[in-house]
């Protein structure tokens, strides 16, 4: 399935608008963390992952694990727009009894392949999925998307060793390298650089790309295709709050709760971009 960059951009814009509305309605939640992964998710779900929205439990599907559970609104919007469930569900996100819990829940939401919410655990679960599925023919791909801050979790590196030791080349780890965590810049709090060298030293094949540029994502992913017998890591440079100027500019924006005014401002900006295309 190949979609033009134009089509993907339009989808990403629609997802950003959904996410702003979802968090505006919920009156809480981390908006900026969702916005940094929108383009990655759109590219995955409209260009990479082999899934069947009408048959979400299809055994041959590629699996997706969201490590950074706080980016879940973006995933929910992508799944809804991809046809896994009606978009109306988005508007009750975070509410009591809603199908869309704050963090991903298996068996509750169609299209969710793995539970999430606790940082540093997605990769280990993705390893388990890849180990279980590697004898299938063809072996489904397993993609795990993590935030850069959760690379500070120890379990992440246990799992990084496991993936390399077992040569899990059906596994791709995407790092949302937005450079920020709750209290500031990752490099000020607990330095992560050089991220690529760390994964290379752990036995991974690594590529880097611009996580907001579909051509760059595609070519970065393409570079990894030759990694036989090694797990793949794509470091996607991103911007927290991407798409909304006042969130991109304000470093503490990740924690901001949207009030009605800022929701309207954000939606205006996203509508503006749409008009400009």
């Amino acid at each position: 399935m190949t979609h033009s960059v134009q089509e993907l951009s339009e989808r990403a814009l629609a997802v950003r608008r959904d996410v702003v509305r979802m968090l505006g309605l919920a009156r809480s939640g981390l908006l900026a963390s969702s916005l940094s992964i929108v383009d990655i998710l759109v590219w995955l779900y409209w260009g990479v992952l082999d899934v069947r929205p009408g048959e979400p439990e299809w055994e041959g599907r590629d699996r997706f694990v969201l490590g950074k559970g706080h980016g879940c609104p973006a995933l929910y919007s992508v799944l809804a727009n991809r046809g896994f469930f009606p978009r109306e569900e988005l508007w009750s996100y975070r509410r009591l009894g809603a199908m869309l819990q704050t963090y991903p829940e298996v068996r509750r939401t169609p299209g969710i392949d793995a539970p999430g919410g606790s940082l540093g655990q997605g990769l280990g679960v993705a390893n388990g999925l890849a180990l279980a599925l590697r004898s299938s023919d063809p072996a489904p791909s397993v993609v795990c998307l993590v935030g850069d801050g959760e690379l500070q979790e120890g379990a992440m590196w246990e799992s990084a060793l496991t993936a390399a030791h077992h040569g899990l080349d059906s596994l791709t780890l995407i790092v949302d390298r937005n450079g920020r965590q709750m209290e500031g810049a990752t490099e000020d709090i607990k330095s992560l650089e050089p991220v690529a060298d760390k994964f290379i030293a752990f036995g991974w094949t690594v590529a880097e790309c611009d996580g907001h540029d579909f051509s760059s994502l595609r070519s970065g992913y393409g570079e990894l295709a030759g990694a036989v017998g090694r797990p793949r890591c794509l470091i996607a440079r991103t911007k927290l709050g991407k798409g909304i100027s006042f969130l991109e500019e304000d470093p503490s924006g990740g924690r901001m709760v949207l009030d009605r005014n800022s929701t309207d401002r954000a939606l205006e900006e996203l509508a503006g971009e749409e008009d400009g295309q």
């Binding site: 694990v65 679960v125 890849a130 279980a132 599925l133 120890g154 246990e158 496991t162």
Partner: peptide, 26 residues
Amino acid sequence: PDRCINVGISEQDMILTASGLALAGK
């Protein structure tokens, strides 16, 4: 032998791996 996975001395990863395997129906 193919159904045994030794993840080394890493209990957190053991449980996570087990979770992933179970999600895939094992």
